[in-house]
């Protein structure tokens, strides 16, 4: 019991600091992901030839390469071109762009699932294309994308762990430091795993509440039939 107390005393403060950074990384990455991903999806579905191509190139590259590689290119490679990011910024940008590419695909699928009939009906009552997208397509598409997006939120908590490799002191980074300091890797990593489980569970519960709030009777079913 004493050993446990000592262990906790040594590790808990660092782990809390690490968890806070992990949460920050998650939130920023998701936000950047939406800000980049949603316009990309719209460009892919409604844009002209060049917008569609650009959108496809972005999603293909960022989904076709590992997060780790993107991180290293951003943090170690770009300085060679004169673009130097401090480690946190590099982490935010890499995670954000990566998430954006995946989110773009979820949004694209959802927008296409809404169905062209909705667009026709919206135009038929005199809405402009933009009005139709804003008031008819997107409200439905975002609801359809919610399950996939919930997964992305929960998954992002885990993906942030990779930034420890550029010495960001997130949960994983702190774990590495602690394991090196006290020579007890298994205990440290098991504890860290536990903290991640807690974070993931909290995220899952939050997303479940969000999903319940936005549920519209039969929206998923109705659209799926088309």
């Amino acid at each position: 019991m004493d050993q446990l107390a000592i262990f906790l005393q040594r590790t808990v403060p660092d782990l809390i600091q690490g968890a806070i950074i992990t949460i920050r990384l998650t939130l920023v990455a998701l936000t950047v992901g939406v800000l980049v991903g949603l316009p990309t999806a719209l460009a892919r579905v409604y844009g002209g030839r060049w917008l569609r191509r650009l959108s496809m190139i972005y999603t293909e590259i960022w989904r076709g390469t590992p997060l780790l590689v993107q991180l290293f290119v951003a943090y170690y490679g770009l300085p060679e071109l004169g673009i130097t990011f401090p480690r946190m910024a590099a982490a935010f940008i890499t995670l954000g762009l990566n998430s954006g590419a995946y989110q773009a695909e979820y949004f694209r699928g959802a927008i296409q699932a809404v169905g062209s009939g909705q667009m026709s009906a919206a135009r038929a009552i005199g809405m402009s294309r933009w009005q139709a997208i804003r008031y008819i397509i997107l409200p439905q598409a975002l609801r359809l994308a919610l399950p996939a997006w919930s997964n992305e939120v929960v998954a992002m908590v885990k993906y942030t762990s990779v930034v420890f490799l550029i010495a960001v002191p997130d949960l994983m980074g702190k774990a590495k430091i602690l394991a090196g300091r006290y020579f007890n890797p298994i205990e440290v990593y098991l504890t860290v795993a536990l903290v991640y489980i807690v974070l993931v569970t909290i995220a899952t519960l939050i997303m479940r509440l969000v999903e319940r709030h936005f549920r519209t009777p039969g929206l998923e079913l109705e659209v799926a039939r088309h």
């Binding site: 993906y159 762990s161 098991l190």
Partner: peptide, 18 residues
């Protein structure tokens, strides 16, 4: 549920050390 709630890197580390 447990394995999927933990980052793959952490799983790799733990299993490797074990």
């Amino acid at each position: 549920t447990v394995i999927r709630a933990v980052p793959v890197v952490v799983v790799i580390f733990i299993l490797y050390f074990v």
